[in-house]
């Protein structure tokens, strides 16, 4: 997994609530057996018309936001389907950080597994960053995971919360599975105890 420590980039504003994973990556793109290559179809139905032409009004099609690395979005971002294709598509496009007032549970989890940092902030902070993001390439934002701060284009600082374990894994790009396998003796012991107590499982 790619490490995440500090990111300075353009933030794209997407002030819609309940952006679901069907919107992030529609199902016709789930037929892949790979993780890569989904970026071109990120937000496909908002981004392209039926003929496959870009819709100029959509934020990521505007010249100022084509290289956005941060997304500022409305509440309950990533609700719906568990598809990890959603963070894969974001990552493949180049988005490494999503900021909102709230995220759906599975999506939130999936982000951390892919080196994307989802940040939950109170409404007024998201409103402020949404305003900053509206200013396009004139407004670069810095997200520093180590110090848990976001620095806006005017130098204003916002702090955010993140679970220490997830922070540790993200900062170091650690592979969960490898870490869990180190605890194999505990799993073995648990399994032995369980097959005595609940043999029908």
């Amino acid at each position: 997994m790619q490490k995440f420590d500090k990111l300075t980039g353009i933030a794209a504003p997407l002030p819609l609530v309940n952006i679901d994973t069907d919107m992030i990556i529609p199902k016709q793109f789930l037929k892949t057996i790979k993780r890569s290559g989904l970026g071109v179809n990120l937000f496909d139905e908002m981004r392209y018309d039926r003929q496959g032409n870009e819709i100029p009004d959509f934020v990521l099609n505007k010249p100022a936001y084509r290289d956005a690395q941060i997304l500022v979005a409305g509440e309950n971002f990533g609700c719906g389907s568990s598809r990890e294709h959603a963070p894969w598509a974001l990552l493949d496009f180049g988005i490494r950080c999503v900021i909102s007032t709230s995220f759906a549970d599975i999506f939130y989890n999936n982000c951390f597994k892919n080196g994307i940092l989802p940040i939950v902030l109170p409404q007024e902070d998201v409103d402020k960053l949404m305003d900053d993001a509206e200013r396009g390439s004139n407004a670069v934002i810095t997200v520093d995971l180590e110090s848990q701060t976001i620095t806006g284009p005017d130098g204003g600082e916002i702090t955010f919360e993140v679970d220490p374990w997830r922070k540790h894994c993200l900062l170091n790009g650690l592979d969960d599975i490898g870490l869990t396998l180190e605890k194999a003796p505990s799993i073995d012991a648990f399994e032995a105890k369980m097959s005595a107590e609940r043999p029908w499982v």
Binding site: G80, P87, N109, N110, D176, I177
Partner: peptide, 29 residues
């Protein structure tokens, strides 16, 4: 790896959806 895994909760089971990285994690561990 499907969000509607909650269905199985009807049996008094703790059931929930996971992403693909977690599918791999469960397969391995």
């Amino acid at each position: 790896g499907d969000s509607h895994t909650a269905t199985h909760g009807a049996f008094g089971a703790l059931a929930h959806g996971i992403g693909t990285s977690e599918v791999e994690h469960v397969l391995a561990t």
